[in-house]
């Protein structure tokens, strides 16, 4: 028996396929996507916009069912309850205007009916972790776009999910804020020890954040390749100027057929 069969990965996607019906015609969004994710990994999914990356995340979150292949999340020793072990972050912060920041962060805990006091303590701690200490009782509109997105990240972590899915979370931010958020997310990921799947169409963001980068082709999303990223930890913006960073980026450009 091989070693791989003995120890199953935390998440396994095997030839996953998804088609949508649009005006009677079948449009393939995801085709033959296979990769494994180990617990605690940071997987960056990179590919052209509209290539079906978001569909892939929706399949993983259980919002959409794949109609081919197999998706298996969780292993016997680390079960994953689809109903409570997933956190999500979207491109827009999607904070509720009528709630304070702390109450926004607490929304998943409320829906899951988690014990209030512990959830609150956790939410305060998370807001400190994402750098929003002192803004707990502010309203969303009082915060800048970057700060709102930090709150959205804290909200995705509040129910202590094992898996966090992020769909271009920094896509709407300006370039400089985005760079800063990358550094922050790298730190948050390390401190929280979660498994993160992160969709982006920024190659440098994918290399900077990922322990593994999955490169997908244009619609339908097919596997173009996967690359393990080994950069010095903790990752700093300086790493972006190093030679190995450039080599990883170049490899991704090649896989995308852009060179």
């Amino acid at each position: 028996m091989s070693e791989a069969a003995l120890r199953e990965p935390f998440i396994r996607l095997d030839r996953v396929r998804k088609a949508y019906r649009v005006e009677g015609r079948e449009v393939l969004a995801v085709s033959d996507v296979s990769f494994d994710v180990e617990a605690g990994e940071f997987i960056a999914l990179v590919g052209p916009s509209g290539c079906g990356k978001s569909t892939l995340l929706k399949i993983l979150s259980g919002l959409v069912l794949n109609d081919g292949g197999e998706v298996r999340i969780g292993v016997p020793e680390q079960r994953l309850d689809a109903g409570r072990d997933v956190g999500m972050v979207f491109q827009q912060p999607l904070l509720l205007k009528w709630r304070s920041i702390i109450d926004n962060v607490l929304l998943p805990a409320e829906i899951l009916g988690l014990p209030q006091r512990e959830a609150r303590e956790r939410a305060f701690h998370l807001l400190e972790l994402v750098g929003l200490k002192g803004f707990e009782h502010s309203r969303p509109y009082e915060l800048s776009g970057g700060m709102q997105q930090r709150a959205a990240i804290a909200r995705a972590f509040v129910h202590d999910p094992k898996l966090v899915l992020m769909d271009e979370p920094f896509g709407a931010l300006d370039a400089l804020t985005r760079e800063r958020m990358n550094v922050e997310l790298n730190r948050i990921w390390k401190e929280s020890a979660k498994t993160i799947l992160f969709v982006t169409h920024s190659i440098s963001e994918a290399v900077f954040l990922g322990t593994k980068v999955i490169v997908l082709t244009a619609r339908p999303a097919r596997m173009a390749g996967r690359i393990a990223i080994e950069l010095a930890e903790p990752r700093t913006l300086e790493a972006k100027t190093q030679e190995d960073f450039g080599a990883y980026s170049r490899r991704i450009y090649e896989l995308l057929g852009m060179t």
Partner: peptide, 14 residues
């Protein structure tokens, strides 16, 4: 209502 907002809570089975 923003559809993504509904998805966000549907993921945790609201």
């Amino acid at each position: 209502v923003e559809p993504d907002l509904i998805d966000l809570v549907r993921v945790i089975r609201a």
